[in-house]
Amino acid sequence: MAEFKTPTAKRVGKAEGSNGTPKIVIPPSPLMKQLGYGTGVNVYLMERFSPMHGSYKSPWAVKKRNRMINDEDGEYSKRLNVEANLLKTMSHPNIIGFRSYTVQIDGAPCLAMESGDQSLENLIEKREEADLGPFLSTQILKVARDIACGLQYLHEEKKLLHGDLKSGNILIQGNFKAAKLCDFGVSLKLNEKGVLCDPAQCYVGTECWSAPEVFEDDVITQKTDMFSFGLVLWEMLTLHAPHVDKLNPDFSSTELSESVLSDSLQEEEYLKALGTRPSLPDTPLTEDYLPVLEIFYACTEADPAKRPTAAKILQVLDSILEEKENTKGVGGDRKFLEMLHEDL
């Protein structure tokens, strides 16, 4: 008679995706709510239910290649893969969190990330439609501090240029509880001096938010991100994208999201405005907007050497906040704003 052995349960390991991360099953696009879109991709909200606990878990944002876009050369799929590999290495409160990456049966890549409530771009559009005027100075400075913090991490620790900074690539959680950078598909590597490692690399970005050196084929540095940073503050003041006032009023947001606009939009006045500091509207602003204006002007200097770093912006904003707390919000801005131009 054969010896009896107690049955043992077999351990089933988690399947892994192409990036060595736990493989997930992504629902078909029509079953998910679309959150937004970018060049060649769509972003959806993926609800996650836990049968074990009988409750929903935190939702994920899923980025998938737009099947309506021709991707014969695999460029958009490559960007998703690059973004997944970058996000896996990053951990910062102002950078969107990586969750998983997988390739579906049909070969379509899917990147799952922490979900933000909505993009800054969406908030700007809603505020403009409601005719509410500029965001509160406190809201703008909160976004400025969070994004400067995220950029400092990218530039100094990860040695990366975001490469496409704009309101559409900033996620806002709650009532401005936190702002987070997202979309790293066209990010570029920087050297120790904050200069592009490989000058042959192509800066993609989005025209309206690009710095003058992009159009002049000049050296790309971390200060290129800072020009775009300044224009994001401008967006929160004016409630529209930079330079679009020069375009045909019939342009669509889809056309604007593309790096290269269609021939119908190539108006001379618009093209001349690209890479320049847009003028501010005639809307009167109170004194509490002074820090916002100073930072906007400093970051949109034509000469990159005159623009502050993300670390400098962070230092100035923290100093202003500390001073306001010590003086109950009275004065204190001017002397700290002078710090923007130190060491330049």
Rank of each mutant, 00 (worst) to 15 (best):
A84K: 00
P109G: 01
T138Q: 09
L141N: 05
F135Q: 06
I124W: 10
K63R: 15
R67K: 15
P59E: 09
S77A: 13
M113F: 07
L141K: 11
K64S: 12
H53D: 14
G74R: 05
D117K: 06
L111T: 12
E114H: 00
I95G: 05
Q118A: 05
G54F: 11
T102E: 07
R145Q: 10
R145P: 01
A112L: 11
D73A: 11
A144Q: 00
V143E: 11
S137T: 01
G97H: 11
L136E: 15
D146L: 01
S91V: 09
K142T: 15
M90W: 12
Y56C: 09
N122M: 07
G133I: 08
N122G: 01
A84L: 04
K88P: 11
T102Y: 12
I95E: 08
F98N: 15
K64A: 15
G116E: 08
L111P: 11
M90G: 15
A108F: 10
E125D: 10
L132V: 03
R65W: 05
A144L: 04
K88D: 10
S91C: 13
C110S: 03
Y56S: 04
T102H: 09
K63S: 10
D106V: 03
P51F: 08
E129W: 01
P109Y: 02
D117A: 02
A84D: 06
R65Y: 10
L141E: 01
R67W: 09
M90Q: 12
E75Y: 06
D106L: 02
S55E: 11
L120M: 03
K142C: 10
E114T: 00
R99K: 15
L123W: 02
H53A: 12
P109T: 08
P134W: 02
E129C: 00
L80A: 03
K88H: 06
K57H: 14
I95W: 14
G97T: 11
C110G: 00
G107M: 00
S58A: 02
R127K: 10
E121V: 01
D117G: 01
T102K: 08
F98W: 13
D117L: 02
P59A: 02
R127G: 01
E114Q: 13
F98A: 14
E83A: 06
I140D: 07
L151R: 04
G150F: 01
P59Q: 05
W60V: 02
S58R: 02
Q139P: 01
G97P: 06
F98G: 14
P93R: 06
P93C: 04
S91Y: 07
A148N: 04
L80T: 00
